[in-house]
Design a protein around this nucleic acid. Structure first.
Length: 297
DNA sequence: TAATAACCTCGCAA
DNA sequence: ATTGCGAGGTTAT
């Protein structure tokens, strides 16, 4: 039985834990009856409770010396990004400002690229409840079980493992027509044809080229992977919600080219396009549909 | 180059 | 309860 480790972090940067974890970037955090968020970062089970600017972090003591618990959290929530600075740079835009005012502590997460790639391949013509369900099924069936007293989570299965699982069983899990896409992505990463983790060092364009080389990954999914896991904060994913926002708020035609919104966002927000996207996205999504009750474990 | 159907299955609304 | 529609896209035609 590994010892439980607990730390308390006093936050010097804005962080709204709940909004950051429920704003469509990730699909595998759950809130328990004690109002604690339970999830997995770097194969470690993590439990988080926020009280104003204090963050209680619980996990198991790790033998991995490379990153201690506090570093892991800082990395995941991109505490190194000076959010107030970002917000000052893009807040001149009225619609972005509106989102900032509503969700001042919403941060872009820095997640595991493989998990994000699979999650967004699965997002194609789907919906958040279904994506969450399938990603959770993948983990509970093929990941490693990890527990922290009462809390139970699963690691996300490696590319090697999912490559071995194969298309047929991915279909059985409910991946649908996305099953061959996940299977071939798993193969590509497992045998090194896609240097997924090295893309953090690559340019936006280079990373885009690699990702869209995969079947089932077009510009939108590639942008999501780049923004939420590959440190490409310029990425401006244009999904149906952003399309609606661009139409309703900025006079874009409803059927415009993907490339046009990318150019527009870069001219307007530069390297902060990704943060601007997130505030626009969550703002229009929240105003169009009320937040669902959150799932409990 | 631009438009359109097909793709799996599930969640949700009626 | 049962049915029918549409869903955070991509590919093939």
């Amino acid at each position: 039985m590994t010892k439980i480790q607990q730390i308390n972090i006093e936050l010097t940067e804005p962080l709204d834990l709940t909004t950051s974890l429920t704003s469509g970037q990730c699909f595998r955090w759950r809130i328990d009856s004690e109002e604690r968020w339970v999830g997995v970062i770097e194969s470690r089970i993590i439990r988080l409770t926020q009280k104003q600017n204090f963050l209680k972090v619980e996990s198991l003591e790790s033998s991995n010396q490379s990153m201690d618990l506090e570093e892991t959290i800082y990395d995941y929530f991109r505490i190194g990004d000076d959010l107030k600075e970002v917000q000052e740079r893009i807040g001149w835009d009225t619609r972005v400002k509106y989102g900032i005012n509503k969700f001042p502590g919403m941060r872009i997460l820095r997640q595991d690229p493989w998990e994000v790639l699979v999650s967004f391949i699965l997002s194609s013509t789907s919906n958040i409840p279904r994506i969450s369900r399938t990603v959770e099924l993948l983990s509970s069936k093929y990941g490693e079980r990890i527990s922290l007293d009462q809390s139970i989570r699963y690691t996300f299965p490696s590319p090697e493992l999912l490559a071995e699982v194969g298309e047929a069983r991915l279909r059985e899990l409910g991946c649908g027509f996305r099953a061959p896409y996940v299977a071939s992505a798993a193969l590509a990463v497992a045998d090194g044809k896609l240097p997924l983790y090295e893309l953090r060092e690559s340019s936006y364009l280079e990373a885009m080229k690699h990702l869209t080389g995969l079947k089932g990954v077009g510009d939108k999914i590639a942008d999501c992977v780049m923004l939420f896991s590959l440190d490409k904060l310029r990425a401006f994913p244009n999904d149906r919600w952003i399309t609606k926002a661009l139409h309703d708020w900025y006079g874009f035609p409803l059927r415009s080219k993907y490339e046009d919104s990318r150019e527009w966002s870069w001219n307007r927000f530069g390297d902060d396009a990704g943060y601007a996207n997130q505030y626009l996205f969550w703002n229009i999504r929240q105003s169009t549909r009320p937040l669902r009750s959150t799932a409990t474990i």
